[in-house]
Design a protein around this nucleic acid. Sequence first.
DNA 1: GGGGTAGCGTAACAAAAATTACAGTATTGA
DNA 2: TCAATACTGTAATTTTTGTTACGCTACCCC
Lengths: 281, 281
Amino acid sequence: MAIREQIQAALGTLPGAEKKVAHAFLANYPSIGLSTIAELAALAGTSAPTVLRFVARLGFESYPDFQRMLRADVQAQLMSPLERARSTGPLTDNPALKASFADIAANLEATAKAVSESEFEAACELLSDQKTACYILGGRFTDAIAAYMAAHLRIIRPNVRHFDGQTSTWRDQLLDVRPGDVAVLFDIRRYQSDLVRLGELLVERKARILLITDPWLSPIARSARVVLPCVVDANRTWDSSVAILALAEALIDRVSRAQSDAARARMQTLEDIHWNNPPGR
Amino acid sequence: MAIREQIQAALGTLPGAEKKVAHAFLANYPSIGLSTIAELAALAGTSAPTVLRFVARLGFESYPDFQRMLRADVQAQLMSPLERARSTGPLTDNPALKASFADIAANLEATAKAVSESEFEAACELLSDQKTACYILGGRFTDAIAAYMAAHLRIIRPNVRHFDGQTSTWRDQLLDVRPGDVAVLFDIRRYQSDLVRLGELLVERKARILLITDPWLSPIARSARVVLPCVVDANRTWDSSVAILALAEALIDRVSRAQSDAARARMQTLEDIHWNNPPGR
DNA sequence: GGGGTAGCGTAACAAAAATTACAGTATTGA
DNA sequence: TCAATACTGTAATTTTTGTTACGCTACCCC
């Protein structure tokens, strides 16, 4: 947009023929400027050298130089978030994938129905409580989702820990858990006995448990403060965890939006630090 | 948008060097296409005639002809309704979950369209190749999905390794990579420089790269054998990885179904062992 | 009213871009 | 393993494009 503004600002000081060029350009922004000098001159009803004098007056070294700036301009506009959403529109179709994804979409819908609003809100509240620590862990496959959630939640609030996958070290990690702490457990079908046991231990330590499970409910549900069921059945060799991830993301988003302005500023700062000091160390 | 659509559709049928051109173009759409052949060729790491053959294959008379279409494309997009004023939508605290899931479902649909069938098949073929090792890794957030995929793939076939999150140990792990090995990389927006670097190292070691990225394509796309784009934009604080996970699951399912009976029997045995000797002891 | 200046376009020129020809190199199938 | 085919890059060629030189016209100020 910079170029357009610049031209509009200069409009008053331009000689007649060059003003015609400016008008032609603005009326056909940006495509005509990405074309050749001859075309722009023709559209403006003037000559090539006039176009050249025009861009020179704007301070550009050459016509290609002017076009470079213009391309950058266009790029910036097309890359803005909303344009992007649109430009990702219909592309080629992949029937097999589409069918597969349709099943998953059905899972999402079913999950949305299975999770009651009050439970969802209660879950968000648990996660938003910054006075206590928050422990996150999952089972054989869902541990990855636990890690994903922890990575995000850590940015939003302090005291987030992901119980790492080594079951042997769980006991040690348990020592840090204090009454009132929040524990997020992911546990779906073929409920792992060790995970269930750990749930019991957490309850003993008076942790408040947020359980994310399937509609058949892991045994942990009995002692959980909040239970969110996800539909995982997808007619596949293995269950699908997509709905679980979607729910986790929804929680993350809801919690991050609920933050105070101060907290959001801190979050932004964290992010900036992260990207300004690229990893590699 | 017609042009992007057309290129995505043709991606599978393009020869290697031309595919690199397509990737470079999509990753820098539209500005690079409005520039010169030489620049596009340089960005794609190939030669001018290849670019020319690329546009010829797409059905254009000449490069200027191609640019004319592209300009029209850009013009159409920039001139469309000014819904740009609408900045990041207000947070409706009503049925948060349903609205949220609807967005995600749209992502899934868009992803199904963005992934061409032939590319998907090519990806499955890479993953099914049991003669070589398979390395899986992801970025800051996507590493969790990499772990998830590895956990499943490990059951289906031998020689699956998840590059663990410690960037400092990557170099060591690289030593094991042999020519022809398959590397699955997850890399989405805010492409991590260290991950890109690692991609280059993998290419040097002649690994075949399967890249899962967003529609703007990580720089790694230039040297990847197969590229699968996922729509991640969800009008949230962070991008959504749901489509990525869904795609990963689709790949896993497709590969597991393609196994021979013998292999499937072995798989079943593995699973039985896992559950009959429950961990936790 | 005449010298001077700024604006403009035609046409020659120079630079660059696109295109083609060709030769070397993989890849595929017999 | 060999032949045939497809793919790719280098280099020469042609075309297009941007740029400059120059002369004409209109206007302003002295």
